[in-house]
């Protein structure tokens, strides 16, 4: 009996800075298979199409239901999560590559530390007085909450940055995900108290003015976050901040 298989080409790299190379694997077809289950199959049989046994491919993943943001990679040239990439819906042979805008650690794993550092730069948090019992939070209309909720679903996956023509490995552009966080926290009644700090943090090199409005971010965002709306809104906020800084201060 010959099993039906799918061909998967994977761009591999052993270490940061070492040359990349391609390997091709044949993975047996299964119902509801996604890229993760294919990679798991490769772990179980780490043999290339020409019969060579190799080190299993390494990749990041965790929740497998598109809420943790780990398994972002390039699938057939497009950035997306591997867990939601169903094999049936993909062009064959399937081509897997690591994200290109972050340093490769190994194979399909990259280092997205820069995204987390950016969260610190813009103070993406609410400065609560403490976690002791000091009563209920501020009252808020549900429509404001709904607006914030959509933005707060960002799982720091990096799709928006990978697809952004302004974001590169050697510049300091903060990118859509970070701008969205600034808007998210500036929209909260308590978060608003640090609004100026956050805006100052994005009014410089790598900041909001470095956005080129290519708007690919919003197209590739797996959570459908209105990133371009966030960018425009933050632009408005910084414009006022600029006017205030120039004319009022």
């Amino acid at each position: 009996m010959t099993e039906k298989t799918t061909t998967i080409k994977i761009k591999r790299q052993d270490k940061p800075g070492s040359p990349s190379y391609w390997q091709t694997f044949e993975v047996p077809d299964k119902p509801f298979a996604n890229i993760i289950s294919c990679l798991m199959d490769i772990q179980k049989t780490p043999t290339t199409e020409d019969g060579k046994t190799v080190n299993p491919v390494t990749w990041d993943c965790n929740c497998l239901e598109e809420v943790c943001g780990s398994c972002t990679m390039l699938i057939n040239g497009q950035v997306r999560q591997a867990c939601t990439a169903l094999v049936d819906n993909l062009k064959k042979p399937i081509v897997l590559e690591p994200m290109s805008k972050f340093p490769v650690l190994r194979d399909l794993q990259v280092d997205r530390e820069r995204m987390f550092d950016n969260l610190k730069k813009v103070k993406a948090w609410i400065e609560i007085d403490g976690s002791h019992d000091i009563g209920a939070g501020p009252i808020m209309p549900d429509q404001d909450r709904a607006k914030r909720y959509v933005m707060s679903e960002c799982m720091t996956c990096g799709c928006c940055l990978e697809a952004c023509p302004q974001f590169t490995q050697d510049n300091s552009f903060l990118g859509a995900a970070t701008f969205n966080q600034v808007r998210l926290f500036n929209l909260h009644p308590s978060g608003e108290m640090k609004k100026e700090d956050r805006l100052d943090a994005i009014m410089g090199e790598g900041g909001i003015t470095d956005c080129g409005n290519a708007q690919v971010c919003v197209e590739v965002c797996p959570k459908n976050i209105p990133l371009t709306e966030s960018i425009a809104d933050i632009s408005r906020q910084t414009t006022w901040q600029m006017i205030k800084n120039l004319l009022i201060k």
Partner: peptide, 21 residues
């Protein structure tokens, strides 16, 4: 501004991205 752009319209074929380039 143009010098810091790394256009990728060939990869991400969206109208706004084409306009960007």
């Amino acid at each position: 501004v143009a010098s810091i752009a790394k256009t990728n319209t060939h990869r991400y074929r969206y109208p706004r991205n084409a306009l960007y380039t």
